[in-house]
Amino acid sequence: MDDRTEFNRLSWHSRRGMLEIDVMLMPFTQYHYRTLSTNDQLAYRRLLDCEDQDIWEWLRGFQVPQDESLARIVVKIRQASCDLGVTQADP
């Protein structure tokens, strides 16, 4: 997949079944993903393949993913949401 297609895929996959996740992942894909290291990008792509309920447990700090790289990316997303503030608007 070329870069644009892959980025579009990530944008589509960061729209989830729950608004709670949307408002954290959509801006993250838009504004942070491209600035991540290759390893973190890989981890983020893997995160997007997980179940909404799991992602939601992690993003709200209920649980920590066992997989270290997933845990690392979750911390970054939580941090980014704090910095950006969470709003309704499309990223």
Binding site: R15, R16, G17, M18, L19, E51, D52, Q53
Partner: peptide
């Protein structure tokens, strides 16, 4: 349009 278990019902 989304993987079924990511439908809004999950909310």
């Amino acid at each position: 349009k989304v993987f079924p278990t990511r439908s809004h019902t999950v909310s």
